[in-house]
Design a protein around this nucleic acid. Structure first.
Lengths: 158, 158
DNA sequence: GCTGAAAGGAGTTTTCT
DNA sequence: AGAAAACTCCTTTCAGC
């Protein structure tokens, strides 16, 4: 039903490029049995559709000086401050992700800090002044794993 | 103090490639005033050091069929089940991140699902059977933002 | 929408400094 | 460590189907 504009070739291309942004498109082309130009056009189409949002190199946070990672659940004083708070959170370099959530918190953010002391500084001198009702900090002392979603949007007809 | 092996050139290279994995290294070379071979060697060095962990294309989760994103906080029945639970969580395709945390929960995971109903299925038929004490679900109904950490590990001497 | 070819660039290796 | 050069391979475009 969804994604009438995407076919098996798109799926195969995405699977090949998603974990290695620097793979030569010609290699993808050979694996898919089409020309390099076709891959080039498909990736452009996928980018135009917004399916592909860009590419990036993955860095090890610890190795660039960020030893502490935490999620901070935020309770706002009033729902009307949502937009303001998020706009201000975005300005804090150490806050790398921000979600509006249902459930426990109003907003959930992911924060990197140099160390635990630095995390405290961020919470006390960067977050609290935004006029939050309360925060709850979940320090990630170990990353269990991180992986990619399966790419499979083609309907398998029975 | 840290990262004696990294210098300003490494920093500049990382800043240039981190948000665009397909940038030509020759373009980086010209911007840095060095040869393409130098960039090639530096990126290899950074990869060897584990600073660079790979590259990836970013896909729009909604556009590949995952409309619901949630964090699930997990309470274990006993600390001794940590490793088993994480190993089993890793086998669930929709669970894309997993952290050992201090604070509210024992484990925090990030889950993508096709829709809210699918999320419930995952929680009930995939997570609960692992023998968890309890779970708390935070549905992300909107992503506020997502960005990269600042890259700056060179000590600025006063 | 794809192919194939052509032209211009880029990636990678080697050699030298 | 990096430069320069050489070689290989890739990207991008376009005519043609």
């Amino acid at each position: 039903m969804a994604h009438h504009e995407l076919d098996e070739l798109d799926e195969k291309i995405l699977r090949m490029i998603v974990d290695n942004a620097r793979i030569p498109f010609l290699e993808v082309a050979r694996a898919c049995g089409v020309s390099g130009a076709a891959i080039h056009q498909r990736v452009q189409k996928l980018t135009g559709l917004g399916v592909v949002k860009g590419s990036e190199f993955l860095l090890d946070a610890e190795k660039i000086g960020y030893e502490t990672c935490a999620y901070v659940g935020i309770f706002l004083t009033s729902p009307s401050t949502f937009e303001y708070v998020v706009k201000e959170l975005e300005k804090i370099p150490e806050v790398v992700e921000c979600y509006y959530t249902t459930g426990q918190y109003d907003v959930l953010i992911k924060v990197f800090a140099k160390n635990n002391k630095d995390l405290l500084r961020i919470i006390h001198t960067e977050l609290q002044p935004l006029g939050l009702s309360r925060t709850e900090t979940l320090i990630c002392f170990k990353e269990g794993f991180r992986k990619k979603l399966p790419i499979q949007f083609i309907e398998k007809e029975a």
